[in-house]
Nucleic acid binder design. Sequence first.
DNA 1: TTGTAAGCGTTATCAA
DNA 2: TTGATAACGCTTACAA
Lengths: 323, 323
Amino acid sequence: MVGIKEIAKRAGVSVSTVSNVLNNKKNVGEDTRQRVHKICEELSYHPNPAGRGLKSGKPETILFNFSDFDRSFYLKIINGISDYVNDNDYDLIICTDKSCEKYMNNSLTSGSIILDMKMRDEVLNRIASENYPIVVLDRFIDNPFIKSVVVNNYDSMYELIQSVVDRGYRHFGFVGGPEETADNKERYQAFRDVLAANHIDFQQKSYFAGNYREKSGYTAAKILMLSRELPDCLVCANDNMAIGAIKAFRENGLRVPQDIAVTGFDNCDLAEAMGLTTISIPNYERGYIAARYLIENIRGQKNTETFKIAAKIIFRDSVGHKK
Amino acid sequence: MVGIKEIAKRAGVSVSTVSNVLNNKKNVGEDTRQRVHKICEELSYHPNPAGRGLKSGKPETILFNFSDFDRSFYLKIINGISDYVNDNDYDLIICTDKSCEKYMNNSLTSGSIILDMKMRDEVLNRIASENYPIVVLDRFIDNPFIKSVVVNNYDSMYELIQSVVDRGYRHFGFVGGPEETADNKERYQAFRDVLAANHIDFQQKSYFAGNYREKSGYTAAKILMLSRELPDCLVCANDNMAIGAIKAFRENGLRVPQDIAVTGFDNCDLAEAMGLTTISIPNYERGYIAARYLIENIRGQKNTETFKIAAKIIFRDSVGHKK
DNA sequence: TTGTAAGCGTTATCAA
DNA sequence: TTGATAACGCTTACAA
């Protein structure tokens, strides 16, 4: 592995001069600069971030952490993060599991964006500091060094369900996501609040606990079909589960929306093809904004007010009009 | 940031003892071991990989590099890599752009899996070495330290097109991917070879150059519809472009497959919903296998024979039977 | 304008 | 069973 010493030797200068060239310090002669650059080029030398970070603690790199491979819109979030980060001359590394804690220190990365729910709040509270800011997606943490970027789940879900009620639907089922997650709680609460506001009854037996995966929506629908009376409309806390439910209904000869309407949340790639009524989350923008706040905070700003992203309701064929 | 010194001080021992505890050396007293572990726990201390890598050069971490966010099956590849890597007590970091070269050295990572075509062969040839093995996906590099894991594009495409010919189709169009990529070349070659074997004429004007994005398939179809005579079947080098083409056809009132059949390659999420006849690449397995070979080579094996993954043909409604 | 040397957090060697 | 110390690749005072 070619290092700074090798470059220095070949250029006939000291390592500090090479370092100065690479860090664009002005105290170095033009000819020396040229020579060093040329040699670095030839040997395709890249400073080792390990050595660099160890010393200076300013590793122009940020970390993104996620782990749910079933949620394909994550790629859009990564895309948004990646674009902002590149435009601002930072690097991005992504970790997909708990081991990312090892990289969350300011000799390797200068801040993190966290999406993985497996990363506990308490751990983040311990790691976040004056010189290691963190941005969390889809949850709220009250900490002066952690900024939350969340989707406005409540308002958009409220509006969607109210529209469905306006179309004449009165009997609802609900398939929830992981119960401890903030977004699931808000989506469910909005759903319940609309029903209450419209004096519509909802029984606990019509609630199905899922995990945001397609399979769990499929299973919920199968169970639902065993019951005596089907609801008019099955509200799902995300698209994957809604799609699973639609598949189950169709397999059993039920028509969507004539026999039962279905709604989702996310507007994933498949939602359009399946004709699913859902709520569109601007994922690219979400990543972009998260990266922007993180880098601003790394650069000294202290903005940790929670940011709420607006979502957009999209009506498609999976909901009709009930006379 | 809490480091080994802090732990040593609190435990009343030297840094080397702490290091020995953390690396499970046997030359340390049981009580000392316990005490050190307890303190690490309390402070949630993780050894800094920068310092560690710098010294020992054995950073149980591998790197994955990709950058095309439009290809959502990449998540499945990452999933496969992640699972194998975790099962073998390695860590995974992912880089999405050229800056990953910085992390491709054995003080930070011990090997890489490369999917991004923007990473040039010559660069990889320079980086790969005895103690930095590389696995490349979807391309072939002849280097004793680089293993290629590729999809058997040719055989599966050949079989698919022959089946389409068997169903009576005789007039073909082709939408290609980036011309320099190996997979596009093989898919196109198989296509041409089937036509030749069946004495079917193919004119250059029926070839459309795309870039694997949906938009380019859409555009190709739009252009195609301007020509006097439509082919019976439009063969696309991947699903995204096939889906773009189908959308364009439908917008113009053409029915698939009655007016024109369409085939893809990849079996992406949308393919099923769109009823697209395509070739299924086992992506999870692809990632898993790539990670397996990489880690085996890191551990001293020297297996750089090219590995070909079999793909599976899936007939759906986008191809019918031509009388 | 350039070079010397200390120090970043860790592991490895060797002495105690 | 432990501890002192050099070394890893790099940056940064500071000296020349």
